[in-house]
């Protein structure tokens, strides 16, 4: 009986009145990569929370790492891209199985508007995932984004240059990505019980014959 109740309370679709239900907190979305699922606390990307992804530079596989989870968000909610560094390329997104009608690209311009738009989208309940590239983002802003992600039950992904790695972070999960011969090396800088661990996540080779 107690187990059944726990299972019910832990169901990601269940909202508890006090906002502390599983859906608001720590449900995990499978990443689509066994090595990454094994590495991350909870076995996937934390929904209803913010994940910081630190990159030395763009293009090392960070999007390919995320795409299976984004494709797998099956509840009809949108995926917001707030001030991405380049154009998300429609043919490639469509080829990977992402439904483009769910993609929302927001060009905020200033960092203030960027954080505002990210918070709004995270909180709205309309988005299953929000990808944001904030320039400056202090702890207070990050905490606000975390609360918004929790309220909206949204997967928040913040891409940041790898500079602030040493600092404390209010985000639930902080990862550092580095290129590796077969794919991407993912290191957990912060994450329940997993800090300090890392794993190589193999990515499909890019060839002109398609994947």
């Amino acid at each position: 009986m107690k187990e059944a109740l726990q299972a019910l309370l832990g169901h990601p679709d269940l909202w508890l009145g006090d906002g502390r239900g599983a859906g608001a907190g720590r449900a995990a979305l499978p990443t689509g990569f066994a090595a990454l699922d094994a590495l991350l606390p909870g076995g996937g990307w934390p929904a209803g929370a913010v994940t910081e992804i630190l990159l030395s530079n763009e293009g090392i596989g960070e999007m390919r790492l995320l795409l299976p989870a984004l494709v797998g968000l099956g509840d009809g909610r949108r995926i917001a891209w707030i001030d991405p560094p380049y154009l998300p390329y429609a043919p490639a997104l469509a080829a990977s199985g992402l439904r483009l009608s769910r993609v929302l690209v927001v060009y905020a311009g200033t960092n203030r508007d960027r954080l505002w738009a990210a918070e709004l989208a995270l909180r709205s309940g309309a988005c299953g995932a929000v990808l944001a590239w904030p320039g400056e983002c202090d702890d207070r802003s990050l905490r606000r984004l975390t609360l918004a992600a929790e309220k909206g039950g949204c997967l928040g992904l913040l891409f940041r240059p790898s500079l602030p790695a040493g600092r404390h972070s209010p985000a639930a999960l902080r990862l550092r990505l580095a290129p590796s011969p077969r794919g991407v090396m993912v290191e957990v800088l912060k994450g329940r019980g997993r800090a300090g661990r890392s794993a190589e996540v193999p990515l499909a080779r890019i060839s002109h014959q398609g994947s």
Binding site: V106, G109, L120
Partner: peptide, 16 residues
Amino acid sequence: RLRARLGDAAVQGLRP
């Protein structure tokens, strides 16, 4: 709300 603050052009969808 995004449009009200950022303007219509700042909010876009994608199609192939």
